[in-house]
């Protein structure tokens, strides 16, 4: 029988390097905070006797519960790999996105650490090219890994530097 939902897309011959599983914790806390905010809005509307207050409250709880359940899979879907000429990055389960950034096109490599990620020893690494749509940010790297990766990427970018 033909499968109704086809397989997810895969790139051939790429061993993805995964990010730290600790990122799940960071994401879950973020989800929780957002859920609380929405629930607070819903609660406030219920307090004001607005009829759709309950709707918002229930929707917020359900949506965030689904997001929380999916978080481990979402984190597992994040991967990157340094190939010979470019860095490839993937993320997403329902909406998959693969991006390849040639080393020569990198303009800047950025490391950011949120307060929660820092307490777990994690950092985000962001690649910037001349195109704003590139939008590659690798979250949940161990701090030392992030520093090493940045140095490596800057070195690679320098040797292959091209015009814009």
């Amino acid at each position: 029988m033909r499968r109704i939902v086809s397989r997810s897309t895969e790139l051939p011959a790429i061993e993805w390097r995964r990010v730290s599983p600790k990122l799940v914790g960071v994401e879950l806390v973020g989800t929780l905070i957002s859920a609380l905010l929405f629930a607070a809005v819903g609660g406030f509307l219920i307090y004001l006797d607005v009829w759709f207050g309950w709707l918002i409250l229930v929707a917020a709880v359900v949506l965030h519960a689904v997001m929380a359940v999916l978080t481990p899979r979402r984190v597992r879907s994040i991967g990157y790999q340094l190939r010979e000429d470019d860095l490839v990055f993937r993320r997403g389960i329902m909406w998959q996105r693969f991006v390849a950034v040639p080393y020569g096109r990198m303009q800047l490599v950025d490391i950011t650490r949120g307060p929660l990620a820092r307490s777990l020893g994690l950092a985000d690494l962001k690649l910037v090219t001349a195109a704003a749509v590139t939008n590659v940010s690798i979250p949940g790297l161990a701090m030392s890994d992030a520093d090493d990766l940045r140095d490596r990427l800057v070195e690679l970018a320098e040797t292959r530097r091209a015009g814009l």
């Binding site: 086809s6 897309t9 996105r97 950034v101």
Partner: peptide, 14 residues
Amino acid sequence: LQSIALKQGPLERA
């Protein structure tokens, strides 16, 4: 070219 993206949503996957 600055970078290349491949994208697929649920409908497209089906």
